[in-house]
Design a protein around this nucleic acid. Structure first.
Lengths: 333, 333
DNA sequence: CACAGCAACTAGAACGTTCTAGGATGCGGT
DNA sequence: ACCGCATCCTAGAACGTTCTAGTTGCTGTG
């Protein structure tokens, strides 16, 4: 480590290559206006000196940062999957990502605040608990795309999975296997929970199973699924659709401990297709969100807002897809 | 969204408050040299105009960014836990974090490259597959702290868990329960794997169980644990220590499918205490890393390097702690 | 042979801060 | 009346880029 040494700048490269700073800048940006021979020489010198462009200075001058801020929650496995997709999509659109995490001791406000200082050109927000009004006040400064949540505000773009459709797919799958008594474990106050619940109810009615509708209170955690399972055990249905995979895992555990076989006695469908659901141990039938589509559309919206292109509908809703594993089968008897 | 509007700068605030740019800067930084009345007025104007300091310009001028870069892997649950600790520790030390993720399609080199452009003052690297020589070439530019991996280089700081000690704790625990035939499922080429393996071997010998040493090849994934379980089934030991929780989960699954009861027939110990091991379904006895200690020490080392304080030993090794859950018990018979 | 046109380069301002050096002003002490 | 010394404020340079508006030197054309 040579922390005492000054950072290499354009000026250093220029001096060494016997050319002006502006010329080196041209070469570095790959802009037209430099002879091939000069270009090669400058690049060689830059390489030798270990020149690294200073994105801050670049940004300061050019006004553009080509930087998109992303707020994600460290605790949410699905956010990590989505990050992967987002990096790809941003790269393809010529933007960089700058990440700001929400942790148990670091709130959304802090996370967003850091991004605002970083001068990114738009913010992509994963879920979270911010109120619409607060989102809007951020959106008055720079474009905001909210993912995996909804918002009534006209100034906030929204990109999310079609939660209602996902529930329909789950119910359709179970009905096609012959189930009729299908219950739903709710997600409580978490974003998307209401949509998944009403989707389930609609689908049940569509199949003429309105009388079998049964919604059990729940939440996003494993313990919520476990508690819901305890309630269901009093009068078990032949199948359950659960708000998310984690909750479904808790439910599965309690079912097993009480001697019920899955899918022999009861079928279970989760939601999100997280890595958890893919574990051989669990191997949960679930509803998978289309990560690439979500990421691509989110970046597309952000870029359109930044570049001022008038851009279709404010909300983008992506269809999910049923992933069949081994927790669903024909009903008993 | 008012994307057309110019960003509010110090100059705007200065003009509005009838004072010089330098004076506003003083107030904003909370530096001494401004009268209380002026301070209040300036702050009020700044508030009204919605002034946001531009961290890039600030940095460009002051040379210091008080920014620490972190490279983490989106796929590794333990990295997320560690991020939480790191945000806390960095905040306490007066530094900000800037994150750069490694994803299946975004390598460590890219991740590090982005951070170098961002002008952070040091880099904290989680695990990864970079060679020591490559680390060193980064370390020649700015301080590097590597976590959860080792490095022979003198110019790279290293902060990690005492893997050998962790294995000792696992073996000690099993021996105290009465086990003698204890096998170990290896982690392959992943960082820490060799230390965990030799720790197991040493501990076995220390207990006079050298003849029972049995190392089964494995890896970091669930499928590696499953494959190892298949081998073990030919002649099952009474207990197994596994490289990590994910692999242990795969192993547990195969054991269950083959009718072995855990811990009745065989005890299993994982490593890392990830959220996975805490699932009621799995409830795995494991070795927990001390996240707060790891994070605090890593930040401490980075800051010491940045500020040029001569700083004790190059490697910081933190003791892990056994977490007993329900996959360990007395051996059969 | 003058001059337009072009390619290749350069000088210098600009971006929004921080920081150094110094200018007013007021006040107490000689 | 003058000095010394705070206290409060300001002018202007600097940071490392990009960008605008050139300047140079060469080639081709009327």
């Amino acid at each position: 480590m040579r922390s005492g040494e000054r950072r290499i700048t354009l000026a250093d490269v220029a001096a060494e290559a016997g050319v002006s700073v502006a010329c080196v800048s041209i070469v570095m940006r790959g802009a037209p206006g430099a002879a091939e021979t000069t270009r090669e020489r400058v690049l060689k010198v830059a390489q030798e000196l270990g020149y690294q462009p200073d994105s801050r200075a670049r940004l300061l001058r050019s006004g553009r940062s080509r930087l998109l801020g992303v707020v994600f929650d460290v605790r949410h496995p699905f956010h990590h999957d989505l990050l992967t997709g987002l990096y790809d999509a941003a790269g393809a659109a010529g933007y960089q990502l700058t990440l700001s995490a929400v942790t148990p001791r670091r709130g959304e406000r802090t996370a967003v605040g850091d991004l605002l200082q970083d001068r990114c050109e738009a913010i992509v927000l994963f879920g979270g608990t911010m109120r619409s009004a607060e989102l809007a006040s951020i959106a008055s400064r720079l474009p905001v795309v909210a993912m995996m949540r909804s918002s009534r505000r006209r100034d906030v773009d929204v990109v999310h999975n079609d939660d209602a459709l996902g529930s329909h797919q789950a119910v359709d799958h179970l009905v096609s296997l012959g189930h009729r008594r299908i219950a739903h474990v709710d997600g409580g106050t978490v974003h998307g929970s209401a949509e998944r619940r009403t989707g389930y109810q609609e689908a049940m009615r569509r199949h003429g199973l309105g009388e079998h509708i049964r919604v059990v209170p729940g939440g996003a955690g494993e313990e919520d699924g476990a508690a819901a399972a305890a309630r269901l055990l009093i009068d078990p249905p032949t199948a359950v659709t659960v708000f998310n995979d984690l909750s479904a895992t808790g439910l599965l555990d309690v079912l097993h401990r009480n001697g019920l076989r899955v899918p022999g006695d009861i079928s279970v469908v989760g939601y999100d297709d997280t890595s958890l659901s893919r574990l051989a141990h669990i191997d949960l039938t679930t509803i998978g969100q289309d990560i690439d589509a979500l990421a691509t559309r989110a970046i597309q919206r952000a870029v359109q807002r930044i570049e001022g292109t008038p851009s279709g509908p404010r909300a983008v809703i992506i269809a999910p897809k049923l992933v069949v594993r081994t927790t669903t089968g024909a009903p008993p008897g």
